[in-house]
Design a protein around this nucleic acid. Sequence first.
DNA 1: GTGCATGCAAAGGCTTTGCATACCA
DNA 2: TGGTATGCAAAGCCTTTGCATGCAC
Lengths: 165, 165
Amino acid sequence: MLCHTMPMATETASRTSRQSPDPFDVFATYLKEHRLRNTAERNAVLKELVQAKDHLDAEGLLVRLRKRSHPVSRATLYRTLDHLVIAGLVKKHSFGQGHAQYEYVLGRKHHDHMVCDRCGLVIEFINDEIESLQEEVCRQHGFQSTNHVMEIFGICKDCRSAKKK
Amino acid sequence: MLCHTMPMATETASRTSRQSPDPFDVFATYLKEHRLRNTAERNAVLKELVQAKDHLDAEGLLVRLRKRSHPVSRATLYRTLDHLVIAGLVKKHSFGQGHAQYEYVLGRKHHDHMVCDRCGLVIEFINDEIESLQEEVCRQHGFQSTNHVMEIFGICKDCRSAKKK
DNA sequence: GTGCATGCAAAGGCTTTGCATACCA
DNA sequence: TGGTATGCAAAGCCTTTGCATGCAC
C-alpha cells in the first residue's frame, strides 16, 4: 500500500532551510520584554515543541517532558503554553473536541490542515490562492484579521483504501 | 404547563426563501429510521435552534427553552444536540475556547465565519472560489472530505472604529 | 533579598453518564 | 406493556487557580 508522503516538501523546506530565528532567543527576548523569568521549565516546554514533528496535546507534552527532558507540572505547562502562544512561537488548535493541540510555528509559513476522522492523521497543506481570497473577504467586510484557521475533516487516503477491503 | 410543539409551518417559510425541507419532518424521519422516539423535548430543542438567528451555546439554548417553549434538562439537551448533528440539521462549532456553539443549517448553503475577538460578533460569508479550491486540495491528497471549517479571527469593523476614538 | 515561578491539590466550566422514573410506540 | 427518554445528580475531562515554597534577577 502506498504511503502518502507527497506534498510535505514545502513543509520540510520551510522549517529547516531558511535560517529561521532561534526559538530560544525569541522566547528569551519575549520574556525579558515582559519582565518574566527565563526558567528551565519554560525552555523545556519550548524545546519539546520544537522537536515534535506533530501536533501535541497537553498530555502528550507532559509525557514527553517526563521521559525525555525536564518534568514539568501541569500548571506550569499550561501557563507556559499561554506565553508561547502570545509570543507567536506556538499555535493552539482545537481539532478534536475536548483537548487542544499545540504546534510550533516560528519561521513556518501559514498552513492549513486536513484531519482524518478515523485515524486522527493530520495533513498540512499550503494554498496561496485560498490565503489571498481570505484576505479579500476580510477587506470586503472591513474586518482586520489576526489569525485564521481552515480545517477539512474527512477520511484520509489510507483509511479509504483500508475500508474498501 | 402547556407545550404545543407544532407551530412550524410558518417558521420554515420565514427562514428560507427557497423551499427547504421541513426540519421537523426531517428529524421525524431520522428518528424513525433509527428507531428513536419522537418526543416533545427533542422537538423543542430543534424548534429553538430553527428560530435562533445566531449561533447558540448549550447554556443559551437552555435559557431560551426555559423561557419560551419547553424546559429541558441539560442531559437531554446534549443528547438531542448529538442527534441533530448526526441528522445533519445542526452544526457544532467550537469558536470560543471552552463551549461549543450550535447552528441550524438545514437547507442553508455552506458558509464560513469571521469571529470578532473583541465583541464576539460572528459574520457569515460564502465564497465559492474558496470552496472549490478546498475540493481541489482534497482531490490532490486523496482525501475524502465530509466537512470543513474556515474561521477568520480578528477585529470587526465596529470594534476597529470604536478603538480609534 | 524581592517577587515572580513552580508544584500540588483543589476548584472551574462544559459535557457525559448511571439510575430510577416517565412515557412513546 | 416493553423498552427507550427524561431528569437529577454525580462523575469525567481538560484547564485554571490559590497558596506555600523555591529560585531567577
